[in-house]
Amino acid sequence: MKQKFKVSCIIIPLFFITGCYENQSTSKTPVKLFSYYQAPANLPDNIKKENISDLKKILTEKWEGNINVIDINTPEKLIQISSCEEYFKYSHQNLETRPLSYYKIFVRDTVLCEATRIIANGKPSSKTYLDSIVFDKHLPEKLPKQMAQIISTMESKRILANNNISTWAQVEPVTRTEKKGPYHLIYYNEGGSERLQLLAKGDFNQDGIEDMLIQINDAVEGGTYSATRLFLLTRLKPNGKIKLLNEWPKEPN
C-alpha cells in the first residue's frame, strides 16, 4: 500500500533554512508553503509555484487573456485586467465582470492573488503557537465563527454581533468530515460543504509571531453558489484562541 498522504510542506528559506517545524528561541522559523497553494487559474497551466520567487513572479505574470470589468459606480468605463498586479490597482473599487457570468471565477482568482501576495511578502517568525493545532473533525470547534458557511449578509451581521457565538462549529453543525490530506479536509453541513486547505505559515503581519493562511471553498447542494474564501489566522499564546486577523473577499463598499 502506498503512503496515504504525500508530505505537503515545502520549506522556503528566506534568510536561512531551519527544519519544517523547528522553532528554537535563537532561530527563526521560515515561511512554509504547502502544496495546497493554488496560483490564479487564469495563468498558464505550466506556471511554477515552488518557492517565494516563483510567487513574486506570479504577481506580475500576465493572465491568459484580459478580463473585462467595470466599477459599478462608473459602469460606462471598461477596465481590462490581465494580472494580479493590475487587479491590486483596482481592488478598492466595486468591480463586476463583463460578462457578469465570469464574476465567480474572477473573484476566486483575485482571492488567490491576495493569497499569493501575502505569502510572497511573508517573513520568518520568531515565535509560534500554531504547531499544536490538529487538522481534524474537531477543528471547527476552535476556528472563528467567520469561517462558517454564512451566505446571508443579514444573518452574518446577527452572528457577528452575538457574543455567545465564537466558533464555526457554534454557527453550523458539521454533519460529516472527509480527510483528504494532512492539512486538507472537507466539512459537510446540511445542504453544503466547506473544503479547508492550509496554504502557508509564516509571519504575515510583521509582529514576529507565526500566522497561518487558510483557504475555504464553499459549495451547496442543488444550487450554483460557490465561493473561495481566504482567512489569515494567528495564535498569540500556547493553546490560546485562534484569532482572525483578516479575511477575503471583502464586502463591496
Binding site: 454564512i150 444573518e155 445542504g191 453544503g192 442543488g222 444550487g223 450554483t224
Partner: peptide, 17 residues
C-alpha cells in the same frame, strides 16, 4: 434565490427572509 442557493440553504440560512 433557489437556483443559486439550492433548497436546503435557502430554507436554513435565510430564516428571516
Amino acid at each position: 434565490m433557489i437556483y443559486n442557493l439550492g433548497m436546503s440553504k435557502l430554507k436554513n440560512l435565510f430564516p428571516k427572509f
